[in-house]
Simulated assay, not measured.
Amino acid sequence: MARIAVDAMGGDFAPRAPIAGALLALGALPPHHQIELIGQTAVIESELDALLRGELAELAHVRDRITIVEAPDVIEMSDKPAAALRRKPNSSMVVGVKRVAEGEAQGFVSAGSTGAQMAISLMVLRLHAGITRPAIGAIFPSAKQPVLVLDVGANVDCAPEELVQFARIGTVYAKALLGRDNPAIGLLSIGEEAEKGNLAVKEAHQRLLGAGLNFLGNVEGRDLPKGACDRGLIDVVVCDGFTGNILLKFYESIGPFLIGMVSKVGQLDPRQVMGSLKQFDVDEYGGSPLLGVRGVSVISHGKSSPKAIKNAISVAVRAWESGMTDEIGRRLAESVPEAPAAPAAPVTGPAK
């Protein structure tokens, strides 16, 4: 049984979106799974009652699988990420991450401040030995198969060894959650030749050649929509968080652009077009686990809809059931046998 803690107060559309998403998730998950809604009890109860009396009345039967955990404080988007734990120890985000650290919940999902969730997860869950920074991995649709890209915003600048760590982490993720037997790794650069790229990319390329991974070499931005390069299918693409975040937000704009363009040219109902292009719907993927910490902490977009939260909860369940975080720790320990427990890294990525 998985018990997933959901930040009921996080996100642009909280508390309605996370609470509705939790109900939708329980309606789709097997009956042994449960959800904890973390936040202000009176607010959560009021929203739950309204949803179950109205638009989600058909899900009244899952109400007994929901527990409310009181957390009176709310971390706002304007709060400084590094100070969130210290200044608001009773916030929904801090309480939720602590539930995971204490073994009371198997995963945490939030659409609140990305920077705050990263900082709190690092300080409370800590990093696996052998890793210096965590990464946010996002699933990108392609013509062949979904591609995992990391990092997409946790680290603006990355050293070569950190890019190698991301490749190791991505390999475990692709096996555990995407079902890829021998994930093929690509290093994002401005050309496929080994000498192309900045200093960090060029050195990371050389290190990846001897890392014992299925490394395809450099890949270019044009390879992502294809899901392949001339050396084969791509499962994982590694880059720094500055590049990855720009790429992610560009990708997120493609779906609405294509839907609008095709609808106009073909004089079609946008809803019909959306059905055929649903792989470009960011809500389909829901959220991205913060990879490298000792627990499941899933980061969702600030504008997450109930559908996105529902899918983020499914990601958290699959991450826990697959043992992904433990496997990441094991793989990293094997690659750096003598590595001491790493301290929490500074937050350098963008907050929502």
Rank of each mutant, 00 (worst) to 15 (best):
D269F: 13
S276M: 11
V262N: 11
H32P: 07
G191C: 13
P340K: 10
S142V: 02
S110A: 05
G217W: 04
A5R: 01
S91A: 02
V100Y: 09
E284V: 04
A174W: 12
E338M: 05
V62A: 04
V164S: 08
I234G: 11
R87I: 03
V172S: 04
Q40R: 12
E203R: 12
R133V: 13
F215W: 14
K352A: 12
G244W: 15
K202I: 15
V6W: 09
V296L: 06
P31I: 11
G107L: 10
C229W: 11
F108T: 04
A204K: 10
E58T: 13
A143W: 08
H32V: 15
Y285A: 02
A341S: 14
L122C: 09
M274H: 12
M324Y: 10
G10N: 04
T132G: 14
K249I: 09
R99I: 03
A116C: 05
G112I: 03
P343H: 08
A5H: 00
S276W: 09
I66E: 06
P81G: 03
L177Q: 04
L248Q: 10
F280T: 03
G329K: 05
P343I: 03
R3H: 07
F13G: 02
G221T: 01
E104L: 14
P141F: 12
T132A: 10
P183M: 10
R86E: 07
G295I: 05
A159G: 01
M9K: 06
N214L: 04
S322K: 03
A71R: 02
A25L: 07
G179D: 05
A22M: 09
L150P: 01
A159M: 13
L125E: 02
